[in-house]
Amino acid sequence: MSNSDRDPETGISLVDGPVENPDVPSTPSKEAKLRRVKRWLSGTLSQKNLMALTGLFLCFFLIIHLAGNLQLLLPTEVAQWQFNFYSKLLSENIFIHIISYVLFASIIAHALYALVITINNRRANGKRYEYDHRGASSKWYSRRMGLLGTVILFFLIIHLRDFWYEVQFGHLPVDKDGQEDLYTLVVTVYRNGWYVLIYVLCMIALGYHLLHGFFSAARTIGIYHPRYVNWIRVIGWVYSIGISAGFALVPIYVHFALT
């Protein structure tokens, strides 16, 4: 409708359009649909949903990853063959390849949306309090998810450089069964005490991140019944401690038992 079809004073349409029947939903135009999608993507609840779903997927991935790592706790001879066999098994599986793309996409989306959300929240906060004691009413790790997440991101970069990059683009020696010897690479890296220390500290950050993240994600996707909420809390505690302690245990064991 051009501007001449409107009353210049009131802006009300002078042309009789079709009367909308509220009982029959009208089919939205392409632009209207696009607007809806855009609005949905910029909504606070949708953005948190995205954080929750990518976060929960990463939680699931950590279990699979830990299952792989725990094989390093086996007796040395068995561990080397078993670990290298496992890594070969994964790298040859097409399903795992697809999952790895979803995984990278999830990590990037989770980090980017966290940044967007943090910026929006800064804007929503406006002026700061001169005297701020609000921390008394919530847990510190629930307020420091961004910081904990940054530590994990920093860890991921080191972690991917040392292992993933070496497997993908480096030249690994082979073990006596002809498999790429990722085991020796891992053990060599874990000989460095500083590396183990940083690793363990990052796993503590991960533990706190999961402790709030797992429970918060469940809330965000809408689990509201008090009974399930209690289960989620318990599962969250067990999961977070299990994952972070499990991951931290491997380098500590390798460092002190195998050197």
Partner: peptide, 10 residues
């Protein structure tokens, strides 16, 4: 212009 809920429960 309100922010996101982080479930801090404060």
């Amino acid at each position: 212009g309100f922010g996101h809920c982080s479930n801090t429960e404060a």
